[in-house]
Amino acid sequence: MHGNIDRRDFLRLAGLGGVAFASGLSGCADLAATRTRDFHFVQLSDSHWGFNGPAVNPEAATTLKRAVAAVNALSQPPDFIVFTGDLTHTTDDPQVRRTRLREFKAIVAELDVRDIRFLPGEHDASLDRGEAFQEFFGPTHYSFDYKDVHFVAVDNVSDPGARVGNEQLAWLAADLDKLDKEAPIVVLTHRPLFDLAPQWDWATRDGEQVLAILMPHEYVTVFYGHIHQEHHYMTGHIPHYAAKSLIFPLPVAGSQPKREPLRWDPAHPFQDLGFREITGGGGATPFAVHELPLGGA
């Protein structure tokens, strides 16, 4: 099955999953132990630090700082934070790129949560194949474990042609091969791994090969950025969730002739910008995704 997930369907499924989870284990000693394996993390994406375009965001110099303050103000601090690419806006000048990465790093250093995982976007990494990004944030693809969940960061941007590439594909296959097929996996990446809208460059050239590696695993969830809007989609049993941006929203694919940012609405500043909280522990119960607007309710 391939298709969009209605947000209500997702919440209903998550809710039912919770009911089944609670009732199935009621009175069982495993219940408390299993629940303590739950955690929550925050996904931030596409801040494009260095972007200058007053018509689409006259608050470009303050928007990322606003997001940092919003995350710090959460009533329950996240266990960790992931940043799924396009930390900075692209530039042809390698020194300006490094200045933007340095400034970005200083701003997010104000986050109270210190455990932050960074991924590059094409704006950070495509013009120098990730060289500057790696100077500031280390490898562009990697994996880590948090409680029972295996996280994998997939780089589909250091190649300007949006390929993951054979070397990383082999690494990914070997990394996942060590896991039980029922082990929960979260994939973090920048571009969609499926052909969301190739006519707008919303795709990964060899994303199909990534999905072929993921498909034998039972509990896989993908969180990504790039398209500057919330979007839910299924490829087989794998849900994919695109995050909102922290600089400007983009239109729904094909809704207008050009892939141009939506203009700033002075009556609704920061509209359609935001981040998300993700709660769960993987496995049969889907992650619960909670979108948080940057402009207030």
Partner: peptide, 12 residues
Amino acid sequence: LCDVFCGDGHEG
């Protein structure tokens, strides 16, 4: 479209 990222303006 151009599908090889080429800089600030590639998206257009």
